Amino acid sequence: MLTAPFGDDEFRDAIFQMHSDKAPGPDGLNPTFYKRFWLLCGREVIDTCKKWLYEGILPTSLGDTNIVLIPKCDHPKSMKDLRPISLCNVVYKILAKTLANRLQKVLDKCISDE
């Protein structure tokens, strides 16, 4: 099952499982954009994801990530008062979510409860 060809629905399911208001990546787009315009851009997203999965080719800009420091308190005084978060492109997240969804189906068979 893990090595079966990826279906278009797997990528669509991945984006629609994401929280719509997550922070945008370097391209400025968040999951809401992709959900709203899936009929226009879905085919290109699917083709890009499949190209990476089958050929190992991912446009370099999709791997771009912004690191942002979010304060843990009102007046941070040192680095320990800040929490780093990574803002990845949504297409990259769709790819990761699709892979995670597949793995989730067999994870209980690979890892025991103990």
Rank of each mutant, 00 (worst) to 15 (best):
F6P: 01
L107K: 12
R36Y: 10
T65L: 05
K50D: 04
I94T: 01
R36T: 09
A100K: 14
K51F: 08
L62Q: 03
I46S: 02
L58I: 10
L2S: 14
E10N: 10
Y54H: 14
I85Q: 06
I111Y: 09
L99M: 14
T60K: 13
C49A: 07
R12M: 09
R83N: 02
K77M: 06
A100P: 08
Q17N: 11
M1P: 15
A4H: 11
I85W: 05
T98L: 14
R36Q: 13
P5F: 09
F11V: 07
L95H: 00
D113S: 15
E55N: 10
S78V: 07
R102A: 08
D21C: 14
L39V: 11
A100I: 13
C73V: 06
M1Y: 13
M1H: 12
V90G: 00
C73L: 09
L62T: 04
N30Y: 03
K72C: 02
H19Q: 10
Q17M: 10
P71T: 01
K72N: 02
L99V: 12
G63V: 08
T32H: 08
Y92D: 03
R83C: 06
F33P: 00
Q104I: 11
N30V: 05
K93G: 01
L69I: 04
N30D: 08
D108G: 11
P5D: 13
A23D: 07
K109T: 11
N66W: 14
P26W: 03
G56F: 04
T32Y: 09
I85K: 06
Y92A: 05
K35W: 05
L2R: 12
V106D: 10
P84Q: 07
M1R: 13
D113T: 15
K72A: 02
